[in-house]
């Protein structure tokens, strides 16, 4: 009657998914500290087939699965949250917040190639999950933006929408919301948007406009954090990764230099190769844009250039076929150099 979902005890995949949630989710965690993504990914004995650890005692985790005593106790305690976790997941599910792990069909598989052991193990998402099935077009920029910059953000979003690409952004004030709204307003062209949130998903879902757009299946909001969590600078950075990793290419509309979330996010993405970065070089750009070009971002000086870029990245997609999360690790690096034929 409602949704298709991977999580749950009906399938083997569902069991792996539940086990991954139990080890890493911050939901229902009063006591012991959940595993960080890096702690999870670097142990193939966890990440390959987590359901095998379900119901195992600390002793079995040590002797059979080869975990150190301290880690075994910790995982054992995390698994003890099963009943509380089931209630939490059901509560979220009931109000339309899905929980995804790398075992679910809608989990964006490029996250593993691009983010490696920083790939989030748990995602909470509200909206049509199909929007996660293929990468979109990232649009980012500062919160305070001039008239010209705003126009660039909106035009870029409209262009992507008409080309059938979801706009991927961060849901913050300024460039993020201008771009996402512009995409949603292109409803006749099938415009859609994916927002990776740094602040509370639950609070965002109280906004009537957001609910409208979700019910119309135009946006999907996603967070790797607790859906009731609060904004922090650390979260904003963590969320920036997902935008770059979740997009075929991400356009930085306007960035400060050496300061601000847009700057650090773009620099980090270039440095760690989270995803291809393009930077706007034209009226409305920010003081940091030129430097981002020097650091390796592809310059975009007109919408004709942008259109060509988007055609190119679509015709040369990143590999997305993979069997298990672990195999993905060996498939690095991703194509970084993007040629622009203008």
């Amino acid at each position: 009657m409602t949704d298709d979902r991977g999580l749950g005890n009906r399938s083997e995949v569902g069991q792996d998914s539940l086990a991954a949630v139990l080890m890493t989710s911050k939901l229902a965690s009063d006591g012991v500290k959940p595993l960080a993504a890096s702690e999870y990914w670097k142990r193939p004995e966890l990440a390959n087939k987590p359901s095998e650890l379900l119901g195992a005692s600390s002793q079995v985790l040590c002797n059979v699965h080869g975990l150190a005593k301290e880690m075994a106790d910790r995982i054992n305690a995390l698994m003890d949250r099963s009943i509380a976790m089931a209630f939490e997941l059901d509560r979220l599910q009931h109000s339309g917040i899905h929980t995804l792990t790398p075992f679910d069909q809608h989990y964006p598989c490029q996250f593993r190639y691009r983010l490696r052991d920083k790939a989030p193990v748990v995602l909470h998402a509200a909206g049509p999950l199909e929007l996660l099935d293929r990468p979109g077009f990232g649009v980012v920029g500062s919160r305070d933006i001039g008239v010209e910059g705003a126009e660039v953000a909106k035009s870029a979003a409209r262009l992507a929408s008409r080309m059938g690409l979801p706009v991927v952004s961060g849901g913050a004030r300024g460039v993020d919301s201008l771009a996402m709204n512009a995409a949603v307003n292109e409803h006749r062209a099938g415009g859609s948007a994916v927002g990776y949130l740094a602040d509370s998903l639950e609070r965002q879902l109280k906004q009537p406009d957001t609910r409208r757009a979700i019910l119309d299946e135009q946006i999907l909001l996603c967070t790797p954090y607790r859906p009731d969590g609060r904004f922090t600078a650390g979260r904003a950075m963590g969320r920036n990764k997902l935008i770059y990793a979740g997009a075929l290419v991400t356009l930085v509309v306007a960035s400060d230099k050496d300061t601000g979330g847009t700057w650090s996010g773009a620099v980090e993405a270039l440095k760690h190769r989270y995803g291809p970065v393009a930077v706007w070089r034209g009226p409305g750009e920010g003081p940091g844009n030129e430097h981002l070009e020097h650091l390796g971002a592809t310059p975009v000086s007109s919408f004709e250039v942008l259109e060509t870029l988007l055609i190119d990245v679509q015709s040369d997609p990143i590999p997305t076929e993979t069997a298990t999360p672990l195999e993905a690790q060996s498939q690095l690096p991703l194509p970084l150099e993007i040629s622009v034929n203008s």
């Binding site: 999580l7 539940l18 359901s51 009943i83």
Partner: peptide
């Protein structure tokens, strides 16, 4: 009905 949803989300071993 809420319990039904919860049972579905409870892994083996519990």
């Amino acid at each position: 009905r809420r319990i039904k949803g919860v049972l579905d989300l409870l892994p083996q071993g519990i």
